[in-house]
Design a protein around this nucleic acid. Structure first.
Length: 266
DNA sequence: ATTGTGGCCTGCCCGC
DNA sequence: TGCGGGCAGGCCACAA
């Protein structure tokens, strides 16, 4: 499912539309338009606007224009398709099909230049409709981005919290971008029990967490997805720890299915 | 404010 | 072969 890494790949794909002008906004699904706007309002606000940048904060993709900012969320099964090329071919838990009925939102761009070549499109194909688009989303409702999280920022995010460590890592208001799979991988590598109170970590443990968090994000971005971690293959009921062979623990923490190793995650 | 819970959405997979 | 139930989790509303 799209976590910060997938959305970063989406952002890179979206950079291809920087400089293009919106000719038509296709928003067939009112449910998919968030923030109290209607599809008609979205169309009016964006038609004729030129895209000036593609940014990302956590799992939120932001298209800057010479008009309003457009925010795109992908939920669990949303894929970004630019000029009919999917930015990621395979999504964990998502279908590999690109059914036209699942196109929930699209920008069609105006043709450029005298060659009259097609202006191209940017669209979200989302079977589950858990994503959405929003005009001028509140970016500051999100914490600092996980991919560039400093140690000081991690410190602030964890300090004085009684919530389970994993729940805090996944809390987008405190750290933006970590989802369930990345959370499990990071804590498994850092050797930290996801159920421990976030504020209970020693300075040494917080350092270790920060180091592993950075490494996991960098490595898995290179590998190409949140589902390509070393723990992933064992995230099932009979799974064993790839490091020491112990039977993995399967629990619900912070409302999410959580796998951890009772032998080395302390 | 913090923390936890339930519901939303729907394709897919398993067991019968 | 078809059917029903459970599962996946990002996000939001709501409760205490």
């Amino acid at each position: 499912m799209p976590e910060a890494l997938e959305v970063e790949l989406y952002r890179r794909a979206a950079e291809q539309v920087v400089g293009r002008t919106v000719a038509r906004v296709v928003a067939p699904d009112a449910w998919f338009v968030k923030g109290g706007s209607s599809p008609a309002q979205l169309r009016r606000a964006l038609s004729g606007c030129t895209v000036t940048a593609a940014r990302r904060r956590g799992k939120l993709l932001l298209l800057d224009t010479d008009g309003p900012v457009l925010g795109l969320r992908f939920g669990m099964t949303g894929r970004l398709v630019v000029d009919d090329v999917a930015a990621i071919d395979e999504l964990e838990y998502g279908s590999r099909r690109d059914a036209p009925a699942w196109d929930r939102f699209a920008l069609q761009f105006a043709p450029v230049g005298q060659a009259r070549r097609r202006g191209g499109t940017l669209r979200i194909n989302d079977s589950r409709r858990l994503g959405g688009v929003e005009l001028s989303p509140d970016e500051d409702a999100l914490g600092p981005d996980a991919l560039t999280l400093s140690f000081a920022e991690l410190d602030v995010a964890l300090a004085h919290s009684a919530a389970p460590l994993k729940a805090r890592l996944l809390d987008q208001a405190h750290i933006a971008g970590i989802g369930n799979l990345l959370g499990d991988e990071i804590l498994w590598r850092a050797g930290l029990d996801p159920a421990r109170a976030a504020g209970s970590l020693t300075a040494v443990e917080r350092r270790r967490l920060h180091r592993n968090l950075q490494r996991v994000l960098a490595e898995l971005l290179c590998r190409g997805g949140s589902h390509l971690g070393d723990l992933q293959d064992q995230r099932h009921r009979q799974g064993v720890c790839p490091r020491d062979g112990a039977n993995l623990l399967r629990r619900t923490i912070g409302g999410r299915t959580t796998f951890s190793c009772p032998a080395h995650q302390l």
